[in-house]
C-alpha cells in the first residue's frame, strides 16, 4: 500500500512543472482561412434556411388549395346535375299534357 501511495504522489507530481503546449505552425493562417470561409457562406446564404416549419406551412397551404378546389368542383357538378334533372322533369310534364302542341285554338 505504501508503494502505491508513493506512485500516486509521483503521478500527481508529474504535471507540476508542465509547460504550455504551443499551437501548431501557421495556426493563425488557418484560422483566417476558416473565418473567411465562414463569412463567405454567411453572405451567400441570403435565402431563408429551409426549416421544418416552412415545409409544414407549405404543405398545409398546398393541401388546403387542393381540398378547396375539390369541394368547388363537386359543388359545380351537383348544380349541373340538378339543373339537368329539373329540365328533364319539365319536358316530361309538358309532353304528358301536350303543352308543346303548336295548334292554335
Amino acid at each position: 500500500m505504501k508503494n502505491i501511495e508513493i506512485q500516486i504522489a509521483e503521478t500527481f507530481n508529474s504535471i507540476d512543472d508542465i509547460q504550455k503546449a504551443e499551437a501548431p505552425y501557421f495556426f493563425n493562417t488557418r484560422v483566417q482561412a476558416k473565418l473567411n470561409q465562414r463569412l463567405a457562406v454567411t453572405e451567400s446564404s441570403w435565402l431563408p434556411k429551409w426549416k421544418p416549419i416552412w415545409a409544414i406551412t407549405t404543405l398545409t397551404i398546398l393541401l388546403s388549395i387542393n381540398i378547396y378546389s375539390f369541394i368547388q368542383k363537386k359543388k359545380i357538378k351537383t348544380t349541373k346535375s340538378t339543373n339537368t334533372t329539373e329540365s328533364a322533369n319539365l319536358e316530361g310534364f309538358s309532353n304528358t299534357y301536350n303543352l308543346n302542341s303548336s295548334l292554335a285554338y
Binding site: 504550455k20 503546449a21 504551443e22 499551437a23 501548431p24 495556426f27 484560422v31 476558416k34
Partner: peptide, 28 residues
C-alpha cells in the same frame, strides 16, 4: 492568445488534430 487557447483545449481533448480544430472554432 493562440497558445493559451490551444493548451487548454489540448489538455481536455487530448488529441492534437481535434484540439487544433476546436481552437480554430474558438477564434472564429
Amino acid at each position: 492568445y493562440q497558445h493559451m487557447v490551444f493548451n487548454t483545449i489540448l489538455s481536455i481533448v487530448q488529441q492534437q488534430e481535434e484540439a487544433e480544430d476546436v481552437a480554430q472554432e474558438v477564434f472564429v
